[in-house]
């Protein structure tokens, strides 16, 4: 496949260490699918969570800088971690639609031209669906995940707030299921796929995370899932920490596996 598009790629903090899998499988697969991921020379962590308070400026500046660098490169911005996706997209939405916030940020940044939310932000999954196309992904598959029953775990950050992220129907998402189908697997729909795992509260209240993660896994297992895929390192951590019922992998890993490049990455 030739190069379809060059994009600015934001890996985010965790993908550089604990979630290296998510990053590396993603990079290699993109290459195969004709997407060139260009990492900006300098980037900062997005902060992990988006603060909805509209008087918070400083916590959103790193995302604005990132968005601006994509704009300068005249490229869409792609994130792969759910949390980065959530923070960057919500920040971009605010820069586009909240005039007071935007003006304050632009005054603070004091750049030559203001940034007004021009950059298009994709989650890696959206890139596969909207730019590459799942049918083309399916054509590139070398080793279909035949017969594997896979549950998609969306968690909260990938879908909500639905109106801002515009990723998929927040109550009945299909995007990961469609990817699983494209890769030759069998998606398992279970109701808790968009319920929170416990997120960062596991730092303070492991019991809450344990309860939530347990419910997700139990629900998926009852529905017949043999494994879960996620896009979020924190989801993966919580789910794995509190249940050993099902293997949890990043969606990029099954993508790389189906594209037949998993070994290549691991070499």
């Amino acid at each position: 496949m030739g190069v379809i598009m060059k994009v600015t790629y934001f890996p985010g903090c965790t993908l550089k260490n604990k979630a290296r899998d998510l990053d590396e499988y993603g990079r290699k697969s993109a290459e195969v699918l004709g997407i060139t991921l260009e990492e900006p020379k300098a980037w900062q962590c997005c902060g992990g969570v988006f603060t909805t308070a509209n008087d918070e400026i400083a916590t959103k500046l790193s995302s604005v800088r990132l968005l601006r660098s994509a704009k300068d490169a005249d490229q869409p911005l792609v994130t792969v971690c759910s949390a980065c996706h959530n923070v960057v997209k919500q920040t971009n939405h605010a820069m586009k639609n909240d005039i007071v916030f935007r003006d304050r940020v632009n005054r603070y940044m004091a750049e030559e031209t203001p940034y007004n939310g021009e950059t298009t932000v994709y989650h890696y999954l959206e890139l596969l669906r909207d730019v590459v196309g799942f049918s083309n992904v399916a054509m590139a598959v070398k080793k279909p995940l035949a017969g594997k029953k896979i549950g998609a775990y969306y968690g909260c950050l990938l879908l909500r707030p639905g109106k801002v992220l515009g990723m998929d129907d927040p109550e009945n998402p299909r995007i990961i299921e469609d990817l699983i189908v494209a890769l030759g697997g069998e998606p398992v729909i279970y109701a808790r796929r968009n319920e929170c795992c416990g997120g960062y509260v596991s730092a303070e209240s492991p019991a809450l995370a344990e309860k939530n993660s347990g419910k997700v896994i139990d629900n998926a297992a009852a529905a017949g899932a043999e494994m879960l895929v996620t896009a979020c390192p924190l989801c993966k951590y919580n789910l794995e920490k509190y249940s050993s019922k099902l293997p949890i992998v990043y969606f990029t890993e099954i993508l790389a596996e189906a594209l037949g490049i998993k070994e290549e990455v691991n070499e």
Binding site: C13, T14, G47, A203, Y237
Partner: peptide, 11 residues
């Protein structure tokens, strides 16, 4: 423990 957890919790 992913860095994301610490960053988010501190935020």
């Amino acid at each position: 423990t992913p860095g994301q957890l610490l960053v988010s919790a501190f935020r």
